[in-house]
Design a protein around this nucleic acid. Sequence first.
DNA 1: TCGAAACCTGAGTCAATATTCAAGTTGTAG
DNA 2: CTACAACTTGAATATTGACTCAGGTTTCGA
Lengths: 213, 213
Amino acid sequence: MGGEETATSKAPRTERGKRTLRKLLDAAAAEFGERGYHEASISGITQRAGAALGTFYTYFDSKEQVFRALVDDMGHLTRQHIAERVPGNVDRLTAERLGLEAFIEFVREHKDLYRIVMEAQFVAEDAYLNYYKVFAAAYTRNLAQAAEKGEIRPGYEEERAWALIGMSVFLGMRYAVWSSDKTAKEVAAAAAELITFGLSPLARGGGLGGGAS
Amino acid sequence: MGGEETATSKAPRTERGKRTLRKLLDAAAAEFGERGYHEASISGITQRAGAALGTFYTYFDSKEQVFRALVDDMGHLTRQHIAERVPGNVDRLTAERLGLEAFIEFVREHKDLYRIVMEAQFVAEDAYLNYYKVFAAAYTRNLAQAAEKGEIRPGYEEERAWALIGMSVFLGMRYAVWSSDKTAKEVAAAAAELITFGLSPLARGGGLGGGAS
DNA sequence: TCGAAACCTGAGTCAATATTCAAGTTGTAG
DNA sequence: CTACAACTTGAATATTGACTCAGGTTTCGA
């Protein structure tokens, strides 16, 4: 997959240009995040950025292109943030808890960008697909490796990856985007307990986060 | 709560009217499902329905109103379909598996409507919120009851409900909307195994679906 | 310091389409 | 059969907002 660099001809060549581009990207994130893709307007973006309408087209070909750029950006940022918070040497079950905790925190700090990712499903489906496929592939691999090491039960790696991603996404939506009435730690502990032991009454009740609500 | 009946003044009074309304609703589901809310056009809807443009406004006040009507409809249909497939007397863990299986099958048969529900997050956020809140509340209650009966470990009912809904939604998206490369039964079995025992290598490996991929 | 390249400006163009409405057609009660 | 209500029609209206462009201003290497 190639598209690291965006449009070739539109890259800024001076310091001033770089500053303007950054202002426009931040403004676009805010505008799309607050108003959604279709309610958002280019003039809204340039107003937020303190620039003239035409300036937008110095750096972007279209409304859709800047939106896609933001989605890709979010993918990088998310993976980076989670990687920073999850040491490479912990076992899979611990990694799940820390990863979810980091994810929820991240979403809280980037609600706008997160909303953009979700809306990409309807605006730039391929970008959205790619976003989650990258996650799912990495996740599937991690699960398979953990299974080999005996850290988790083997089997169903792909289905589990999608199930776990869905869990994270919805917990992020509910406890980061919609409301922050519980801490990321609490939510992550609850989910980790579920991921580790399932719902079965036979599993040991102690363990991680305690057990009571 | 309460909006069962839609607009009062716009209800059809003759057989012909009822038929036209139904054609418009079906056409709207197809148009929104295929093209998304904003790409969809009223003229697209009326063309599919074989009606004139103005006829749409005999039955609906606006584009958004018909969209909301479809979201509400989907909520009813989904709950009904799942309730039909999950006997009331089975234990919670079995209910989870059957419910997910029914859900995936349902999404496969109603991809258009399902896409509409997801897009509602950006078009009619309150309708979307309501859709999931109803599910989450019911789910939370079911989990609490099951815990009382000793069918599952108690605690974290609300977080678990959202986590499980997220799982279903993403598995539905991946294995029903995007691709049908696995049967609903297979996917449900994998998820049920995860929900029941978690990932822990300590849980018994036999049980439900076997274990190997 | 100079000039070209880079950048900025915002009024104007243009296509799309949600919604209205005045004039017809069909159904049905009496 | 008649007349009114229900329904249908599609051209016209009105708004919106993405995108263009011709002319300025700023930057920066030489």
